[in-house]
Simulated scan of single mutants.
Amino acid sequence: MFIPLHDANEFRNIKIQYVTLSLIAINVVAYLLTTVGTDDFVNAAVWGLGYIPSTIFDIAERPPEMVIVPDDWTFLTYSFLHGDIWHLGGNMLFLWVFGDNVEDALGHFRYLVFYLACAAAGALVHGLIVPDSEAPLIGASGAIAGIVAAYLILHPRVKIWVLALGRIPLRLPAWILLALWILFQFAMIFAGGDESISWAAHVGGIVAGAILVLILRRRNVPLADATVVTPKAVEVERPAQVEPQIRSPWGRQ
């Protein structure tokens, strides 16, 4: 639908968004480690770390040679794997633009808990929709969807620079862009969109993000913050004008 570029939304509680930066770095490193190698190595990583609903719901069993971590761990490990550079780049761009302000609103540790919980919620809803699926789910989209929902609740009026349709630069309020994005995810899960995309994982992340941001945000962080941070021209304060005083020869008047 659109490619986010910049939101001009300054921090209020933190100086550096080091959890967001660390998550981006981990995702990039995981992508390089799991995609650079033979096809057998790549497949082993995907099948060993991806989320497979049928193994979670005890319908099927992962072959022993494919087990890298316990099945329950894949609720999180799947979110650090990506199929190709475009899959990775899209998720990391959303994380870069929107994640830092959610981290600012929640605090570093609670933001990390929030991110992982949204990832796990995305996997859970995906599994509930297709419990017998033997295809591994990978990607950070569930966690990213939670961040988008949280950002919409926190900063609906902040204006965001985006590329609409991948080529048209626009600057629009977050509530228009992100609300449309969220509605699109719900529409796709009911309309049966592209089967290579887990719309259910997106919806699970959205619901989790919308709930958790209400619980985990800092006490001094309001909802639907109307403050729009944009660069402003510098105004030079003029010196106050002093009224001339006329002294009377007869003394003070």
Rank of each mutant, 00 (worst) to 15 (best):
I138T: 12
I153Q: 04
A143N: 06
L152Q: 01
A140G: 12
K159F: 11
R167V: 13
A164C: 06
I147C: 09
K159I: 10
R157I: 08
L165H: 12
L154W: 00
I168H: 07
Y151C: 05
I147D: 01
I144M: 03
L163Y: 11
K159S: 13
R167H: 07
H155Q: 14
H155Y: 15
G146V: 08
L170Q: 09
I153A: 03
L154A: 00
A140H: 11
I160T: 12
L165A: 14
G139R: 05
S141W: 13
G142Y: 03
P169A: 08
I168A: 06
L154N: 01
G146M: 12
A164M: 14
L165S: 14
L163F: 08
A150N: 01
A143Q: 04
I138W: 07
H155G: 07
A164W: 10
V158Q: 12
R167A: 14
V162S: 01
V158S: 13
A143R: 01
A149C: 12
I153R: 00
G142K: 01
I160Q: 02
A140V: 14
A145T: 11
H155K: 12
I138M: 15
V148Q: 03
I168P: 05
I153Y: 05
L154G: 02
R167T: 14
G146S: 14
G142N: 04
A143H: 05
I160C: 12
Y151K: 03
H155F: 14
A143K: 02
A143W: 07
A150H: 04
P169N: 09
V162F: 02
A149T: 03
G166K: 09
V148W: 03
P169H: 07
I147V: 15
R167F: 12
L152Y: 02
A145R: 05
W161Q: 06
K159G: 06
Y151E: 04
A140N: 14
A143I: 06
G139I: 07
I160G: 00
L170S: 03
I168Y: 08
V158E: 14
I147P: 00
P156L: 08
L170E: 05
L165T: 15
I138P: 04
G139F: 07
G146F: 12
A140K: 11
Y151G: 02
V148N: 00
I160F: 06
H155N: 14
V158C: 10
I168G: 06
G166Q: 10
L170P: 00
I147M: 10
S141G: 15
G139Q: 10
S141R: 06
G146R: 04
I168S: 08
G142T: 06
R157K: 15
I144V: 15
S141C: 14
A149G: 06
S141H: 15
A145M: 10
L163Q: 09
W161D: 10
Y151L: 04
A140W: 08
L170F: 09
S141D: 15
I160Y: 04
I138R: 12
H155I: 05
L154C: 00
I144Q: 00
K159D: 13
P156S: 13
L170N: 04
R157A: 10
V148H: 04
I160N: 03
